[in-house]
Design a protein around this nucleic acid. Structure first.
Lengths: 346, 346
DNA sequence: TCCGGGCTTGACAACGTTGTCCAGGCCCTA
DNA sequence: TAGGGCCTGGACAACGTTGTCAAGCCCGGA
């Protein structure tokens, strides 16, 4: 009927605009804008008429137009590795809560550990003109973000540092955490410890391996190449590597696993063995305390990572111009038993 | 320098526009637009000059302006309960993948089970002019979406149906799943079975309770009010209710839990008891197979829920105008042992 | 040589909103 | 009663992009 009256085509998705509301309420365009935005300078009576027109037409402000005019979107983008990974989910949620507290909307997406996809996502967010960007890097070269950062897009990296540019980063102490976890195994008598981690190009994977080597060196223990394996965290690969390390001339008596996905797979491998094998894993797991023995882990506080990163981001958005900051959060060794199994005699 | 040249104020966040690119490349505005969008009708030489200007200025198209002009945003919104809930995470991810396959960006947000927040989020997405909306309802009244739907925002509800409006919905068979799970307990000799679920205003909580009652009635078993508890899924409440049901004159010998969070808490309660208590839970858990006994669950395929909902959404966006559809996906009883414990004699 | 057609290019309006600025009406005071 | 100030309301431009349309160019054929 509105369309018939105006003679416009009933284009699908055609929505009433402030102009339509103004016409119906018999007021000017700017008055509608004032009412919609709760600005002062409108009498109660006028406001009521406008509100009625808004309800009658089902008007909703078009934020694209608003953004275009105002220049700020009140939104931030988050590029992470996998929305569904139980480690990143709390991080995501924490970022969301901080954004909400600052009146900003969060847009997020999964890079699936693919640098090209990370880039696409980050740039798509920039095209939407997010005010800020939080990135869990999949790639090592972030120079593609330079024009964006120069143009004023605040950017914070989490979990892994940026490559090729100076930027804020909020990280966990992967090296120290892994070192403590491996030291725990050594303290319980283990001498041949296997390390299974993520692909070597992932920063945290390298740092955790470095922590493993440091702990072994601290104890004066040799490390055989056969005990170290970095690569994709697919169950198939992890299982095969574990089984390889458990056989042969110098089988390992304990595992240190580089992240939650590896830990889960190793738990399944261990469960089927006739003899117990010790394990300490990086990242906590939901039911780790209920297994027997409980799984000893090096826990990161994912929510805190996200919260810190988001707060740093909004700090920057508030105008802080200091040099890029690098925050490193401590990890926590949670001892539950699986690291205390004595090495089986062989 | 650009600012000095144009005399404009160096507003923070000022970005080059197509106009700037055009000026630098010595071409018209529309030609830049053509290059940026890969439209035909530009000579190689011109294209090269434009590309150079784009790179030199660090230009990136402003999608807000584009959306304003084109009317479609190529984005969809997803309102869910909690980004960090392990049940919803795969659903989220599945929606993301389908959206990506259709060239759309996903915006999501957590309602935290608060109807008001659900409404705020959904309407914020609409203000951003998402093409479509996928909602996991927190509230029961979705009439607030009527103007949006009338204006052409395709809308699909997942996990729980809409209230007050006719709309597409993709659900799990909560009633049938709970019935099968409880029947499994009954088949193993249990007669006094406790049901602990989520708040009664949540649709799935009610359906699962109904399934419990159906299974009990099928077997001709009475249900005491003391064995049924719906409410918040906080560990404190769940623990208290469980302990109450385990004591008194007619203690339960098994639990059926209404969702993954309740199951986790009950597992912790059970683990400390001197005698075994049987359990079947709704929703699968990551390490359920590694506990002893393994946790028997009624599993939903969360990823499939999300995938189906998203595909239905894009089907609508492609112009399908049929009557609202209600899809109900089957659940699967995964028997792992915890449901087969015989009732302790008392 | 002239004309028609195809190709490349650019001028201009429009998308829906908000900021600026001005006009008109009211009330208050001298 | 006139003048001044305040309050309300509206006209208009601008944000950065894309669709429309027409102009200019070059080429081949008559």
């Amino acid at each position: 009927m509105n369309d018939a009256a105006t003679g416009r085509l009933p284009r699908y998705g055609n929505r009433p605009t402030m102009k339509d509301v103004a016409a119906r309420a018999g007021v000017g365009l700017k008055t509608v804008s004032r009412v919609v935005n709760g600005e002062p300078g409108v009498t109660q009576d006028t406001e009521r008429r406008v509100q009625e027109a808004i309800t009658a037409l089902g008007f909703r402000r078009n934020d694209s137009a608003r953004v275009l005019r105002k220049g700020r979107t009140s939104s931030v983008g988050l590029v992470l590795e996998d929305l569904a990974d139980p480690f990143y989910a709390p991080l995501n949620r924490a970022v969301e809560e901080v954004a909400r507290a600052h009146g900003a909307l969060l847009i997020n997406g999964s890079s699936a550990e693919d640098p090209e996809r990370e880039r696409e996502l980050a740039l798509a967010f920039c095209a939407r003109r997010v005010d800020g960007l939080i990135v869990i890097p999949a790639g090592h070269d972030h120079r593609y973000l330079e024009p964006e950062i120069a143009a004023g897009v605040a950017t914070v990296f989490v979990d892994r540092p940026a490559g090729g540019i100076a930027a804020d980063a909020v990280l966990s102490d992967s090296h120290g955490g892994a070192r403590a976890g491996v030291a725990h195994l050594i303290a319980h008598g283990h001498r041949r410890i296997g390390f299974i981690g993520d692909r070597p190009r992932i920063h945290t994977a390298g740092e955790r391996l470095r922590g493993y080597r440091t702990a072994m060196a601290d104890a004066g223990l040799p490390v055989s190449d056969a005990w170290v394996s970095l690569g994709p965290t697919t169950p198939e690969r992890v299982r095969a590597e574990a089984e390889r390390m458990l056989t042969g001339e110098h089988p390992v008596t304990a595992f240190f696993t580089g992240n939650n996905r590896v830990t889960v797979t190793i738990l399944r491998v261990i469960a089927r063995l006739p003899h117990p094998v010790a394990l300490v894993g990086f990242d906590d797991l939901e039911l780790a305390d209920l297994l027997s023995p409980g799984v000893t882990v090096v826990a990161q506080d994912a929510a805190r990572l996200g919260r810190n990163a988001a707060e740093l981001l909004f700090h920057r958005l508030d105008g802080a111009e200091e040099a890029p900051r690098r925050v490193e959060l401590p990890t926590r060794l949670i001892v539950r038993g699986s690291g205390e199994l004595p090495p089986a005699e062989r």
